[in-house]
Nucleic acid binder design. Sequence first.
DNA 1: GGGGAGAGATGCCGC
DNA 2: GCGGCATTTCTCCCC
Lengths: 243, 243
Amino acid sequence: MEKYVSQIEEALSKNHSVVLGARCKVRFNGRAESNLAKGDRIILIKPDKTLIVHQPQGNNPVNYLKPGANHGLYYEDEKLFLKSRNLQLKEYMDIEITRLHFFNSCPLDDACTVVVSGTEKQMSDMLYDNPEMIEEGFKPVSREEQTKFGFIDVFGYDKNNVLTIIECKRFSANLNSVDQLRRYVEKVKTSKGISGVRGIIAAPKITANALKMLEEWGFEFKSIKPPKYMERYDKKQKKLDFF
Amino acid sequence: MEKYVSQIEEALSKNHSVVLGARCKVRFNGRAESNLAKGDRIILIKPDKTLIVHQPQGNNPVNYLKPGANHGLYYEDEKLFLKSRNLQLKEYMDIEITRLHFFNSCPLDDACTVVVSGTEKQMSDMLYDNPEMIEEGFKPVSREEQTKFGFIDVFGYDKNNVLTIIECKRFSANLNSVDQLRRYVEKVKTSKGISGVRGIIAAPKITANALKMLEEWGFEFKSIKPPKYMERYDKKQKKLDFF
DNA sequence: GGGGAGAGATGCCGC
DNA sequence: GCGGCATTTCTCCCC
């Protein structure tokens, strides 16, 4: 295992990405503290000095340090010690490696950003562009903006010129969503000195408790499907459907 | 690259963990949609069939599939195609690999769970066990419990036997925290048919807007530090402090 | 399984 | 940097 020390150090110094398969213990100290007993994990160190530790199960890393950490490596007592620190965040991780299953590294070149669709912003855009989805005669004024009343998804006037605030949720609205809407409506009422302000939650669905609270506050729920996804898969891509 | 197909397939069939360093495009379709153009990434497939794609920067994966996916692999046109599907969640990922920088796999054996300390629960426990930290004469009744009024961190009675609800935050309290407290206090007032209910936010700090709203609602802020961490590092561990 | 809430949340944008 | 808010949030707990 000792022979890998210089190889790993060289890879780190060249800003390559480093992957280790290792039996190790992990200790973290920072915003919280954690201890992880001995087991097999994948350790990833990125060119930006992010450190990520994955167990063989689960979606999320069991431990990590954010970008910009320092990583020190040394060998002693037949163990490999990785001592990593993010000094800005005052977060520390110590990994004690007792067996190295594999080590690999390579330079990674990737400046792409992922393009995501199906977000809440797109939903508020859709409502802004298609106000009749809220109701006939609705006239939107602003969307996704930090108004002086706070951050409001969409607001405008209904056909009777009553000021109307819309809070969008991409999935299911809950108690928190109602809290938000309520806070905005109250801010507008106070700021404008008017009492007639409508509040609408626009979402595909809403929890029972949230609906109850919504109605208690005199607000409304409007069932709106989020912008439909792209065609799930091109029918042409027959070859991809082989299993 | 073709020769790796059978090796990777064998590793997957044996439920080993698989790591690829690859130049690839990624397409995801599920709860949202995303497209990622060609670039170098680390691809990790776990024994539980989790799929994770990391770019060379950043803390979080750029794409992933949750545990329980199927992974199919084939080679065509000098490209390696990984077609992964989580059928339960109706989530799909297609990765088109044009260059394979490295491939590694090994069985990982790890049943450990991480032990974390310094959480909000410990903070509410601390207040429950040391009620004088709130104020002299405070008598806690319940903590971190799903009461019939909702999930309340700590509640009890002050020295004047006024019902008091405490909302803990481990870091900074914000508008959302005030919303929560307000919702609890109102529930209790309505359920018990009483008007004299105190609401306190216990946190190390609070944002200016949140404090303003808190006071408008007649609630109080109590500055409380979260339970202190373990000794940062054993002084004995001199060897670890070498850099 | 749904609902509610925290999290070492993370990440983004705006002031 | 802080603040407010969405997130393919994730995770846990409880009903």
